[in-house]
Amino acid sequence: MSFGPFLLLALMEGMVTSAVLALAAVGLSLVFGIMRVVNVAHGEFFMLGAVSAWFVSQWVPGPPAVAFAAALVLCPLFVGAIAALADMTVLKRLNYEPEATIVATIGLLYILQQAALSFYGPDARPVPAPFSFRVQLPWFGYSGYKMAVVLASALVLLGVWRLLAKSRVGLIMRATQYDRETARAFGINVDRVYAGVFALGGGLAALAAVLIVPIQQAHYLMGTEPLLLSFIVVIIGGLGSLRGTVIAALLIGLSDGVISTFFAPTLAKIVATLAVALVLVFRPQGLFGRRAL
């Protein structure tokens, strides 16, 4: 295969990474932007999404597509419910103190990880893709499912953006973000907004995981890498900036695809981490830091 098609393949692989990463990172970014909580357990919400998708694929009979569709709906709801519960029972009681919530979410990380080990086990297990047709390009065939992942992610991100920018719920979320005391003085139930935002953040991570699990397999330790990459993306894009997060996810995902294909996956991670260091030194607020959401 000559260089051109090879590069195209690398970019397409990068797009899949970007798509999944953007979903997970937007979840992390929303939680930080609105609640000012650095959620170290975000990767575990991702893992729970993948693991619960495996359980759904075992329980739901019929063709893989039906089980997958069920997982796509049920897993984000399940993980969102766990996140809301964690918010109401732990984070709220800590009064959202920044240091305390970091320690608390580290604890949550281990609880969720060990729970997955206990109930799911140490094995990596695949979830069948809902369909398996290949798109034949002139130079190579490519998984139709991976293309669908990119499309699905783009649609969900569009939905999240519309929710925030155009809906009443989004207006309440933004008002809470800017001034939670004044929001209370105008009848906004801030506790409920926070629980909802934490659930939305966890649900987005879970959704990203359900999309990736036919490609990557579910494993109880799989949350670490998306956590690290989400932080990288959110820092580069600017904390709390939805647009910056999506652009940074594209940047990191595509460079990961290209560098992994032509050099080595480890080099891709080194470059991404270096990019974070440079951004923190020269533009600490991130590429799109000032413009919130």
């Binding site: 009443r168 207006l171 309440i172 933004r174 008002a175 800017y178 001034d179 004044t182 929001a183 105008f186 906004i188 919130a292």
Partner: peptide
């Protein structure tokens, strides 16, 4: 809500 528009503040 300084980053919201006039209309959005009224809406709240």
């Amino acid at each position: 809500f300084a980053e919201l528009t006039v209309a959005e503040n009224i809406e709240i």
